[in-house]
């Protein structure tokens, strides 16, 4: 259950192969209503029925925030993942009916910023595509620094260059091109905010470099959705509902709770938002905390767990759910 907002019934209008790794999906509503407008940086949770397994993956919206005719997302194929991206790539076709959550924004622009410096790596470009459309419409000042593996894998580079010209800077790993981050951060006017979306290493690099150069933490923003990691199967007791469940290796604890018919809150399903925080009543063993939400103290105390991404090893785990 996602805090009461109605879900959006959609049909897949279009599936486009952007490059060897990325497909773009366009959804339009089945009920004839307009899509809600949204704010750049928002994501939706896409519900999938993967041959009996219910998957719910978050994807950033990349269509223009004011466009109510449809929503677009891009999905990168992840061969090592649990299967959500593979399902989207291998099974989702135009004409299929699916269900989306309402948009939620956990990666908003800071509206007070004098300038927005956007740093993207690979598929991390998607929230910025929507944000740039929003900034352009409102006359916001921005520039994009976009790192891709090669020209062939540079999704949307031509589109973005055509639209935003010299404000788009592209760097190719294949040609040993690298964002000159220290120089870039040194020359920004006071009131600039920097945003980064991409691989974990890139996010850590931007945070660490900015901090070392005296940028205030609140001017540095990042979004990293964690895919729920795979792991060993484990058993969990749900005290409030009186059930004991088994979490399969390629299933998240949240998904297992939902599969047992127990309602649990969520928003991001990626360890970032805190909505699914659950009290641990008893823990005989070790919780693998994979989230960005709980404090280190909370993690060490083993009294809270984020079931969307975290797992367990040991003799027994009892949750207040």
């Amino acid at each position: 259950m996602s805090v009461g907002a109605p879900k959006i019934p959609v049909v897949v209008a279009e599936v486009i192969e952007v490059n060897a790794l990325i497909k773009r999906f366009r959804f339009v509503r089945r009920d004839g209503l307009a899509m809600p407008v949204f704010s750049g940086g928002a994501h939706v949770v896409v519900e999938m029925d993967d041959h009996g397994t219910r998957r719910m993956n978050p994807y950033s919206l990349m269509s223009a925030p004011g466009d109510t005719s449809g929503y677009e997302i891009s999905v990168r194929r992840d061969e090592a993942g649990r299967g959500g991206s593979l399902y989207m790539h291998n099974h989702v076709r135009a004409g299929m009916e699916m269900v989306l959550s309402q948009p939620v924004n956990l990666f908003p622009l800071d509206a007070r910023a004098k300038k927005h410096l956007l740093i993207a790596g690979g598929i991390g470009i998607t929230p910025f595509v929507a944000q740039m459309a929003q900034l352009e419409a409102m006359g916001g000042r921005f520039e994009l620094h976009y790192s891709v593996r090669s020209p062939a894998l540079g999704a949307y580079v031509d589109h973005l260059r055509g639209r935003y010209g010299a404000r788009v800077h592209v760097y190719h790993d294949a040609f040993d091109e690298k964002i000159d981050l220290a120089n870039l951060l040194k020359t920004q006017p006071l009131g600039t905010h920097v945003y980064v979306c991409g691989p974990k290493g890139m996010i850590a690099w931007v945070h660490a470099t900015a901090r070392a150069m005296g940028w205030p933490d609140r001017a540095v923003h990042s979004e990293e959705f964690l895919a729920p990691p795979v792991g060993l199967a484990f058993d969990v007791s749900l005290a409030a509902s009186g059930k004991t469940i088994t979490v399969q290796p390629n299933q998240s604890l949240l998904e297992a709770i939902e599969a047992a018919g127990v309602d649990a809150p969520y928003l991001c399903r990626g360890g970032a938002c805190g909505q699914c925080e659950t009290d641990v009543l008893r823990c005989e063993g070790h919780i693998e905390h994979n989230d960005h939400w709980l404090s280190d103290d909370q993690k060490a105390s083993h009294t809270k767990i984020m079931p969307c991404v975290s797992r367990f090893r040991g003799a027994g785990l009892v949750l207040d759910r």
């Binding site: 996602s2 805090v3 009461g4 907002a5 109605p6 809600p36 949204f38 309402q102 948009p103 939620v104 928003l267 938002c273 805190g274 909505q275």
Partner: peptide, 11 residues
């Protein structure tokens, strides 16, 4: 505050 930060459009 915790509740409101998660308030959703349409709800």
């Amino acid at each position: 505050l915790k509740f409101l930060l998660k308030l959703q459009h349409g709800a």
